[in-house]
Computed example of a mutant assay.
Amino acid sequence: MKVEIWSDVACPWCFIGKRRFEAALADFEHKDGVEVHWRSYQLDPTLPAHFDGTETQYLSQMKGMPEPQVRQMFEHVKAQAAGEGLAFDFDKIVVANSFTAHRFLHLAKEHGLGAEAKEALLSGHFEKGEDIGDIEYLVCTGAALGLDEREVRDALEGNRFAEEVRADIAEARALGITGVPFFVLDRKYGISGAQPAEVFSQALKQAWAERSPLTVLAGPAGSADGPACGPEGCD
Rank of each mutant, 00 (worst) to 15 (best):
E4W: 02
E4M: 10
D8Y: 06
V9W: 02
A10F: 02
A10C: 12
C11R: 01
P12V: 09
P12M: 12
W13L: 02
F15K: 04
I16K: 06
R19V: 07
F21H: 01
E22G: 04
A26I: 04
F28K: 11
H30R: 13
K31R: 15
D32T: 07
G33K: 01
E35G: 06
W38G: 03
W38T: 08
R39H: 07
S40M: 03
Y41A: 08
Q42Y: 06
Q42K: 06
Q42E: 13
T46N: 03
T46S: 05
A49G: 10
A49H: 13
D52S: 13
G53C: 08
T54M: 03
E55S: 13
E55K: 14
T56S: 11
T56I: 10
S60N: 02
Q61R: 11
Q61N: 07
Q61D: 03
M62H: 10
K63S: 06
K63M: 04
G64D: 09
M65A: 08
M65W: 06
P66I: 05
Q69L: 10
Q69T: 14
Q69S: 13
R71T: 15
Q72D: 12
V77R: 11
V77S: 13
V77D: 11
Q80I: 10
Q80V: 13
A81H: 12
A81T: 14
E84N: 03
G85I: 08
A87F: 11
A87M: 14
F88P: 00
F88W: 04
F90L: 14
V94C: 12
A96H: 08
A96E: 12
S98P: 04
S98E: 09
A101Q: 02
H102A: 01
R103Y: 00
F104C: 04
L105A: 07
L107F: 01
L113Y: 06
A115V: 10
E119L: 11
E119C: 06
A120P: 05
L122R: 00
F126R: 08
F126W: 15
E127K: 01
E130I: 11
E130V: 12
D131R: 05
G133A: 08
D134P: 01
D134C: 10
L138N: 00
L138V: 02
C140A: 12
G142I: 00
A143N: 03
A143D: 05
D148E: 04
R150P: 00
R153W: 02
D154N: 07
D154G: 02
G158P: 04
G158E: 05
N159W: 02
E163M: 10
R166L: 03
A167N: 09
E171Q: 09
G176Q: 09
G176V: 13
P181H: 07
F182C: 15
F183P: 00
D186L: 07
D186A: 15
D186T: 07
K188D: 15
I191R: 01
I191M: 00
G193N: 05
A194C: 06
P196M: 14
A197D: 09
V199C: 01
F200K: 08
Q202V: 11
A203D: 06
Q206G: 13
Q206L: 13
W208E: 08
P213Y: 07
T215Q: 08
T215W: 05
V216I: 15
V216G: 09
A218Q: 11
A218Y: 05
G219R: 07
A221K: 15
G222M: 11
G222I: 07
S223A: 14
D225S: 13
G226F: 12
P227M: 11
E232N: 15
G233M: 14
G233S: 15
D235M: 10
